[in-house]
Simulated scan of single mutants.
Amino acid sequence: MTTARTARATALIAVPCAALLAAAAGVDQASTHQLIDHASAIYAPNGKTAAPAIVYGILYAVAAVSLTVWTTAALAARRRGLGIVALTTATVVTIASALGLFTVAEYGSVLYPPVWGLLALIPLIPGAAATVQLARRGSAL
């Protein structure tokens, strides 16, 4: 298997990793409601009600963006220059999205527990490996 194919295969692993955030949000929304309970504890003292559609919608939006950038990066990984740019872009977008989940706050409290930001970062593991594989390919030329 060539380095480009290996990098693409590795980058493709990031796609289902990106879907983990949406899957975890769906499980929480359908069963345990821990996230909305956490958000309600933040809003209740201020006389407000947490809107599940917004709280979970943000997670689904982050997951959708992550799925899009990692799928695009995996498809672009065939070509070294374009692949490195796409993988780097996916990395930056993923980090920015996770930082948003780590820092978004209302009424002085962070809205999302850290586990949600960590779930958003999981695609970086195979994504970073794919970037290194493509960069090595270029240094060997």
Rank of each mutant, 00 (worst) to 15 (best):
residue 120 A to C: 11
residue 128 A to K: 01
residue 122 I to R: 05
residue 117 G to E: 00
residue 113 P to K: 05
residue 90 A to S: 10
residue 33 H to G: 06
residue 129 A to V: 15
residue 10 T to P: 07
residue 90 A to C: 09
residue 39 A to V: 04
residue 51 A to K: 08
residue 117 G to K: 01
residue 15 V to G: 01
residue 127 G to K: 04
residue 89 T to Q: 03
residue 47 G to F: 12
residue 119 L to S: 01
residue 86 A to C: 06
residue 76 A to C: 13
residue 114 P to D: 12
residue 22 A to H: 08
residue 37 D to G: 10
residue 81 G to E: 14
residue 86 A to T: 01
residue 7 A to I: 03
residue 108 G to L: 09
residue 107 Y to T: 02
residue 13 I to Y: 07
residue 92 V to K: 06
residue 61 A to Q: 07
residue 99 L to W: 12
residue 69 V to F: 03
residue 57 G to R: 07
residue 24 A to T: 06
residue 78 R to K: 12
residue 112 Y to L: 09
residue 58 I to A: 11
residue 46 N to F: 15
residue 124 L to N: 06
residue 34 Q to Y: 14
residue 86 A to Y: 00
residue 115 V to P: 03
residue 13 I to K: 02
residue 80 R to D: 09
residue 46 N to Y: 15
residue 32 T to E: 11
residue 45 P to Q: 11
residue 32 T to H: 13
residue 22 A to P: 00
residue 68 T to N: 05
residue 20 L to H: 01
residue 67 L to Y: 05
residue 128 A to L: 15
residue 64 A to R: 05
residue 17 C to H: 02
residue 88 T to H: 04
residue 100 G to Q: 11
residue 8 R to K: 13
residue 7 A to E: 01
residue 46 N to G: 08
residue 129 A to P: 04
residue 76 A to I: 02
residue 123 P to C: 06
residue 49 T to K: 10
residue 55 V to N: 02
residue 14 A to P: 03
residue 113 P to N: 07
residue 10 T to K: 00
residue 75 L to I: 14
residue 48 K to W: 11
residue 77 A to N: 04
residue 35 L to A: 06
residue 86 A to L: 07
residue 87 L to G: 01
residue 15 V to D: 00
residue 128 A to N: 05
residue 82 L to D: 10
residue 38 H to N: 10
residue 10 T to W: 07
residue 83 G to Q: 04
residue 39 A to M: 05
residue 58 I to P: 01
residue 111 L to R: 03
residue 48 K to E: 15
residue 121 L to M: 12
residue 38 H to A: 12
residue 77 A to R: 03
residue 56 Y to P: 01
residue 26 G to N: 11
residue 96 A to W: 12
residue 32 T to A: 13
residue 72 T to Q: 05
residue 109 S to N: 14
residue 91 T to V: 09
residue 8 R to S: 15
residue 96 A to T: 12
residue 107 Y to W: 15
residue 93 V to Q: 03
residue 127 G to R: 02
residue 34 Q to C: 02
residue 64 A to E: 08
residue 84 I to C: 04
residue 30 A to I: 06
residue 81 G to W: 09
residue 24 A to K: 03
residue 102 F to W: 12
residue 72 T to W: 09
residue 64 A to M: 10
residue 47 G to M: 11
residue 128 A to C: 12
residue 57 G to D: 10
residue 94 T to E: 00
residue 53 A to G: 12
residue 109 S to P: 03
residue 124 L to D: 01
residue 68 T to G: 14
residue 129 A to D: 05
residue 28 D to N: 13
residue 99 L to F: 14
residue 50 A to N: 07
residue 72 T to V: 15
residue 98 A to E: 02
residue 110 V to A: 12
residue 55 V to G: 00
